[in-house]
Each structure stands twice: as C-alpha cells, then as structure tokens.
Nucleic acid binder design. Sequence first.
DNA 1: TTGTTTCATTGCAATATTACGATATAATAT
DNA 2: ATATTATATCGTAATATTGCAATGAAACAA
Lengths: 109, 109
Amino acid sequence: MGLAKTEMFTDEQNKISLFAKAFGHPARVAILQHLFKIDTCICGDLVNEIGLAQPTISQHLKELKNLGLIKGNVEGTSVCYCIDKENWASMKDIMTHFLDQDISSNNCC
Amino acid sequence: MGLAKTEMFTDEQNKISLFAKAFGHPARVAILQHLFKIDTCICGDLVNEIGLAQPTISQHLKELKNLGLIKGNVEGTSVCYCIDKENWASMKDIMTHFLDQDISSNNCC
DNA sequence: TTGTTTCATTGCAATATTACGATATAATAT
DNA sequence: ATATTATATCGTAATATTGCAATGAAACAA
C-alpha cells in the first residue's frame, strides 16, 4: 500500500517516525549539517554545496521547514535558512529518549 | 525517481539516513520499543502486540535485522528476537553525534 | 505419515518518495 | 517598464515503501 497505519500507534511512536523520516534522506542530513556548520545559509549555497538541482533542494527544505526543524527568512531575492533551535532541542529530547532505552539483562540470543 | 543519489554524500550522511529510515515507520519503532521492554520476544507476540498482519511484521523485522539492530534465534517452531546491543550502541553513537550538533551563536532568523 | 504451528517468502496493488524540467513568483537592478 | 536573480511550485517519470493474501518451509505433535 505504501501507507502507514498511523492510527494504531501511539503519538510518541508516530512522532519519532516522522522525525526519523526527515533524517531518512542523505540530502536532508547534509542540509542540516551544513546549516549547523555555517549557522545560517542562503538556499543557493545549499544547491552548490550539495549536488542536487534547485527544485530538489527546495523540496527537501520545505519538508524540514514543515516539520519545524528549520526556519527561512526572505532577504531580498534570496532566502536565508537556519536551524530552529527550540524545535531542534525538543526533537532531540524525543529521539534521545528513544535511543537511550536500555536493558539491564544480557542478550537473549 | 524515488532513488536517492547516495554517491554524492559522505559515508556518515548515508549511514545516518539508513538508520533514520529504519526508524521512519511507527511499526518498527513499536517493535524496537517492545523488544526493549520485554528484552526478548517471540515474533508471534509482536504480531499480537502490534495490529499488523504477520507477513507485514515479518517484513519489518527483516529490515531491522538486515541493519543489524536486532537478532533472531530459532527456537523450535518460533523465532525469538532481541536487540543487538552492540550494534545498537554504535548506531546510537552515530545518531547522537548528529543530533548533538550545536551552534554557539543565536538564531539568525 | 499427517497434521499443526510458526515464521518467511512471493506476488501484487496502493501509495509515497525522489528528482528535475518547465514555469511561476517576488524582489531588485537598470 | 524590462531584465535579472533567487526561490517556489507544478507536473511527471522512475523508483521505493507498505500491507496483505497466498503459499512455502521447518520444527514439532499425534
């Protein structure tokens, strides 16, 4: 089907999978890493930095923006993007909680 | 296309996106959470716990196993699954490093 | 052997994702 | 006004993902 049955899962599980899905493409990972490194970044820089076409980058940026992980500010004809730190922090909390699960006992198999 | 151009990204970026993709479906998140909670788990229990059909669960388990995040042990007619803690830990290192990026300066926009 | 149980695999339909050319839009420059 | 620059959106082709019915395989039970 290609359609996840989200209604049978908890809000937390759905939230984790939505964030994870955003990181599920190397271009979006690269965009985020570049935004962290440069702190702020014009969209056009990302098109040069990463090797994908401009509409493709724009599409990836839109997904990240819809999730709230980045913000975009129009500056003349260009758009300045940066990490939304508050939302990044709360995303990090959720993901870290998921990754930090631990079990005391030994491996079963 | 539906095909990510992995060759234009770093190994780290591709690795992050592969792990993230595994967490990009709530059923796989639920499976992993259940394995952590129960420590060890028969495949059939997961089919009951989560509401998806047996072949669907089996498929999700296969993906997690291919990535090395879980292990499966045959026990008679059933199969016992559990987290591969070593691989989980190294995955966690990679993901945490990605999530923990920080910038000293203030928001740009 | 003949079922029975449990899980994996196959095949397929429905939907989602990725990528990009073409085009629209919006700000600025001349 | 017209051109230029930067980005967004649309449309579409190629591929991937999800879900499950049907079936296969493997261990066990009677």
